[in-house]
Write a protein that binds this DNA or RNA. Structure first.
Length: 274
DNA sequence: AACACAGTCAACCGCAAACGC
DNA sequence: TGCGTTTGCGGTTGACTGTGT
């Protein structure tokens, strides 16, 4: 296969990190900054693979992390974002400053799924549970990705810039629940809103390149029809969405201080996926 | 007190995109 | 342009902790 392992497993530590390892990693990153995770462990004197260092830093050691309980508002925001984005934890995390994708993923699997199920909502499809959806009703089968075709291993993920808003979430008023409550949406069909009961106002959003929580605002702020239409065709999720350096969207000049880079996003065309 | 079970969360694994030569 | 390398993401695992019996 030719793919070299990410690290020399025989000479790396695994499992829980020690305080000393944490201190080494923090000290190194404070001195040299993030980057080149592959070579970082050696340079920092850590017997860890780069991936492990990155994960530890991103999920636990980063100084800007907000630890502690999620609020009810956070819950609702996560639910709405999940309805919009599916299991794109990194994107969801980007709308919750101080939270990591791993944290949100865990929180989703341990709390929110249960919460939605108790409300009679399928956590994957965000539709009311119906008698026929036994698999969905179980809800705790974490690999279930109904309604989010990009998760299918058989279907290669499109390039990351194709983060777009599916047409089926562009509803501003509470749509009527699907007749059968569970139509054939496993392939990402666009026949009905994914989570009608949540009344997501997802066609609404601030102008491109607004500050953090753009999407959060987009998920809850009402506005004029004209704006809705405009934003329905131009929704920029450039902030905190894993943008690599050097990438830019056309609205970069609006210069949000926190915006290290931008990515311009188009709405989904028929057949496009997140 | 001891055990079993459930819940939580840090960490690992494999894959695919992005990058760079 | 092709190919190897690096990075990032999402799914899964397993250790740890809390709770019930």
């Amino acid at each position: 296969m030719g793919r070299s392992p990410c690290c020399e497993k025989a000479h790396t530590n695994k499992g829980a990190w020690t305080k000393e390892e944490d201190q080494r990693l923090i000290a190194y990153i404070k001195a040299h900054g993030e980057g080149c995770w592959r070579s970082l462990p050696k340079a920092a004197g850590l017997l860890r693979c780069g991936k492990s260092c990155r994960l530890r830093w991103m999920n636990y050691l980063r100084p800007d992390l907000k630890r502690g309980n999620f609020t009810d508002d956070d819950d609702e925001l996560i639910i709405k974002l999940h309805a919009l984005l599916g299991n794109k934890w990194s994107l969801i995390a980007g709308q919750l400053p101080g939270r990591t994708d791993n944290e949100i993923k865990n929180y989703w699997n341990t709390h929110i799924k249960r919460k939605l199920l108790s409300r009679g909502i399928d956590p994957q499809t965000h539709r009311p549970l119906s008698g026929g959806s036994a698999a969905a009703a179980s809800g705790l089968t974490s690999s279930s990705t109904a309604g989010f075709p990009s998760q299918s291993p058989a279907a290669p993920r499109p390039a990351r810039p194709a983060i777009v808003i599916p047409p089926n979430v562009m509803f501003a008023s509470a749509p009527a629940p699907a007749e059968d409550g569970h139509s054939s949406n496993s392939g990402g069909s666009t026949d009905a809103p994914r989570c009608p009961d949540l009344n997501l106002d997802l066609s609404v959003g601030p102008p491109p390149c607004s500050p953090p929580n753009t999407l959060a605002a987009a998920a809850s702020t009402p506005t004029s029809q004209q704006q809705q239409q405009q934003w329905a065709t131009t929704i920029c999720l450039c902030y905190h969405l894993g943008v690599r350096s050097g990438e830019a969207c056309s609205c970069k000049q609006t210069a949000s201080p926190a915006a290290a880079g931008f990515r311009f996003l188009r709405p989904l065309e028929e057949g496009q996926y997140i």
